[in-house]
Computed example of a mutant assay.
Amino acid sequence: MSTRTPGGDIPIRRLDRILAFMSLGLAVLSIGCFVAVIIARPAGVTDFTEGLWPVVALLPLIALPVAFLMIVALLIMTFVRRARANRGN
């Protein structure tokens, strides 16, 4: 069992919220674009070189790894902050 720190919970910083919401937004946008490409191929959209389709097809390749790295950075920052708070008590 873990023990609670006497000082209470650690406050959530603005940077933590920004990273969390940006990573969530990128992941949702990437999955939406991935689903759009999956639906567009059987629907007959064979030319993915015109219009907005190149961006829609390329976005999941870039945004999902970036979202994953942002989540990892958020976890590392949280663990470091909690370790510093526990060390100070």
Rank of each mutant, 00 (worst) to 15 (best):
G25T: 10
P42A: 01
V56Q: 05
I31P: 07
A43C: 07
A57K: 09
D47I: 05
V35N: 03
V37G: 00
P60R: 06
L24M: 14
L61R: 14
L58E: 10
A27H: 01
V56R: 02
V35E: 08
V55H: 10
L64Q: 05
D47C: 05
P65S: 14
I38S: 02
F48H: 08
L69S: 11
T46G: 15
G25E: 07
V45F: 10
V55G: 08
A27I: 01
L59K: 02
V55Q: 12
V66C: 12
A43W: 12
F48W: 15
L29Q: 01
A63G: 03
A57V: 00
P42D: 03
S30C: 05
A40I: 11
P42G: 00
T46D: 15
E50L: 13
L64W: 13
G32M: 04
L61D: 09
A43R: 10
A27R: 00
L26R: 07
I38W: 14
P60N: 09
I38R: 10
E50Q: 15
V55K: 06
L64V: 12
V35G: 06
V45M: 11
T46P: 11
A57C: 03
V45Y: 07
A63E: 02
V35I: 13
R41N: 12
A40W: 02
E50C: 08
V35S: 05
P65R: 13
S30Y: 01
P42V: 07
A63T: 06
L26C: 04
A36T: 11
V55I: 15
G44Y: 12
I39N: 06
G51K: 09
V56F: 10
L26G: 08
F48A: 01
G51D: 00
P65K: 10
V28P: 04
F48V: 02
L29Y: 00
L24D: 15
P65F: 12
C33L: 02
C33T: 05
F68P: 05
T46R: 15
A40D: 09
A43V: 03
G44A: 04
G44W: 12
E50D: 07
A67F: 04
A40H: 02
P42W: 12
V66T: 13
W53Y: 09
P65V: 10
G32R: 13
A43S: 15
A36S: 13
P54Q: 14
A67D: 04
V55R: 04
P42M: 10
A36C: 13
F34L: 12
V45R: 01
A63K: 05
V37N: 04
V37F: 09
L52V: 11
A36N: 11
V37T: 13
A43H: 09
I62A: 14
A36P: 15
